[in-house]
Design a protein around this nucleic acid. Structure first.
Lengths: 224, 224
DNA sequence: GCCCATGAGATTGTCTACAATTATTAATTT
DNA sequence: AAATTAATAATTGTAGACAATCTCATGGGC
């Protein structure tokens, strides 16, 4: 019961850590657009800190894949080609698949109820807005986040939610949202049913199909 | 056709990058044992550099998961519990599964021949040394590395070979090698056959079973 | 007119010093 | 004697200055 309390170490915020979050926000929100250079001097002045902490922030974001750095040249916001994005989705397919499988084992009844309500909201929204994407896809990601979290695998959660999803968010702003939200809703419902039935194998299979469809859409997109 | 040449950017080596490799070696080789503190001043003196580049090295290793840092306290070599290691193996199971699937599509005939020879060497070694683990497991990892590389998915390659495997190597030195090398050899042969047959689905299934067995051994290990 | 070399400017890499925080030790109190 | 508090030492966080490298513009040669 105390396993949650153990992790409750309130880390003191250093400038470097604060700026890491700010810089990440600027990147995933599109404020700093993909491929644009990141000047240490300029950003350190903008955030009102020295170059040291800012370099630490850049280093951290590089570790997350949001930033690409080249010696003696500098850092740039990452720019993903269609193929690289497809590679990420291939990984996501596999990882969220196991996340769904583990979630079927570990999800609590309370979490299941919440998830069901989320799907209901999603359904009403699609109905009322006649097939429009749910809240700019945020609702869709909410669904996925919850299942990932319910897996209980801390490393899986971290990789998917704190690394891959940020990368996907960068790309997402340059693309239209879910192409067929009704279809997504149906698949969500099926996955939910599998979780309710505690059928891990089916949950994994369905999740992989669900994400695989998105990957294929990316791969089939013309140009680049 | 020039896609390979594009990536051939010979990055200049900065002190920070050199020391990152040195420090990583010291960690994965066990020179710096798991859980031990990493003093910035001490290490910067040992490597003959300033604290700045050393901090960069630590930051990078933190991004790879080899080092854990706490504000105002310092960095330590990561220490994995049995459960955390099992979590990593769960991810590896999924990721190497898709790697095998992709490899079945993309592996070249030349790579297949090399892989076959590696298995033959492995087989002779096990025969001659009567069931002993093959070269302290390095041969086993060689097999896995090649399949991962053959997948062609750059991000998958990077995550598995440059992050997860280093973590596993830290743990490995405190554990005995493969428990049943004959069994591993059989499974390797089956995976190889699936790759030869270009049967991606089967390759994935076999790879997942293969790694799943290792994960279960970890989970069943007593204590901690 | 185009290509290559040279040099000024700008940016990143590194070092040193200082500030802030934590860990440790010693003294004091109950 | 044990526990608490205060002072000291050690370590990390941050800032600023200098060195090394790259970029870009200018000028010269073919």
């Amino acid at each position: 019961m105390g396993d949650a309390a153990e992790k409750t170490s309130v880390k003191p915020l250093t400038q470097a850590r604060e700026v890491t979050d700010l810089l990440m926000q600027d990147i995933v929100s599109g404020q700093l657009e993909e491929g644009s250079r990141i000047s240490e001097l300029e950003l350190s002045r903008r955030y009102g800190i020295g170059r040291g902490p800012l370099r630490e922030a850049i280093l951290r974001l590089e570790g997350m894949g949001l930033v690409v750095r080249e010696p003696h040249v500098g850092a740039r916001v990452v720019r993903l080609s269609r193929q690289e994005l497809a590679e990420i989705f291939t990984m996501r397919e596999a990882l969220e698949g196991v996340a769904a499988r583990e979630a079927a084992k570990n999800i609590t009844d309370a979490e299941l109820i919440d998830l069901g309500q989320l799907i209901d909201r999603h359904g009403r929204y699609v109905e009322e807005n006649n097939g429009e994407a749910y809240m700019d896809q945020e609702g869709d990601y909410d669904f996925h986040y919850r299942i990932i979290k319910a897996s209980g695998n801390q490393r899986l959660i971290n990789l998917l939610c704190n690394e891959l999803y940020h990368l996907i968010r960068i790309y997402r702003k340059t693309s239209k949202g879910e192409a067929r939200p009704e279809r997504a809703l149906i698949e969500h419902k099926m996955i939910f049913q599998a979780l309710q039935d505690r059928d891990g194998e089916l949950a994994e299979l369905l999740m992989r199909k669900h994400i695989g469809r998105a990957r294929r859409e990316i791969e089939n997109a013309i140009e680049q």
